[in-house]
Design a protein around this nucleic acid. Structure first.
Length: 170
DNA sequence: CCCTGATTCGC
DNA sequence: GCGAATCAGG
């Protein structure tokens, strides 16, 4: 792999968009090892990995701080939405159980609503910008080309022909 | 076994 | 610097 400036740029872009290393590799015509190796070498921010290094490289010194875990917002179910072990019919007669937090759920601010592209009428580009899950994550939201979910600029990146790719002739 | 990302180490 | 091999967890 010839890591030209443009190739690195593309790697950075795809990496920032949260693609898996294998997916990036597929898009750029390289192995995922090449991708992850280069990303590591570039000091790109490590994305949430299924593996924590605590297990790999034992670090005897510091144990994980208690502050590592953020409190879950009230009213939201934990990740697994499994069926309760108790029959739902009992719910009406649950006198002893303290009522859970009312889950106040504030009305969404207009700015928040505007952050999402409108699907109904004027379609806007839904190309992701920034790190998903972070506060500054957003969508491109430029005017999408008719019939496509992306603007012309991002459509050119999204749809890559198998032959005649933009940058790599790999 | 499929997937994931991270590190190692010969080149 | 590169990336396959390897590791390790889901």
């Amino acid at each position: 792999m010839d890591w030209t400036t443009e190739a690195i740029e593309r790697l950075r872009a795809l990496w920032a968009e949260g693609h898996s290393t294998a997916e990036i590799g597929r898009r750029m015509g390289v192995s995922k090892n090449a991708v992850v190796g280069k990303a590591h070498r570039l000091n790109l921010p490590a994305r949430p990995s299924p593996i924590r290094r605590e297990a790999l490289a034992e670090r005897p010194a510091q144990a994980a701080p208690a502050a590592a875990r953020l409190p879950r917002p009230a009213g939201l179910a934990p990740r697994s939405t499994l069926a309760p072990t108790v029959a739902p019919a009992m719910a009406t007669t649950l006198a002893a159980t303290p009522a859970p937090a009312p889950a106040p759920m504030p009305a969404p601010q207009p700015s928040v609503v505007r952050a999402f592209p409108r699907l109904g009428s004027a379609r806007s580009c839904c190309w992701p910008i920034g790190e998903p899950g972070t506060p500054d994550f957003r969508f491109c939201s430029a005017e999408a080309t008719p019939g496509k979910p992306y603007c012309t600029q991002h459509a050119s990146v999204a749809y890559v022909k198998a032959r005649d790719r933009r940058e790599d002739a790999a």
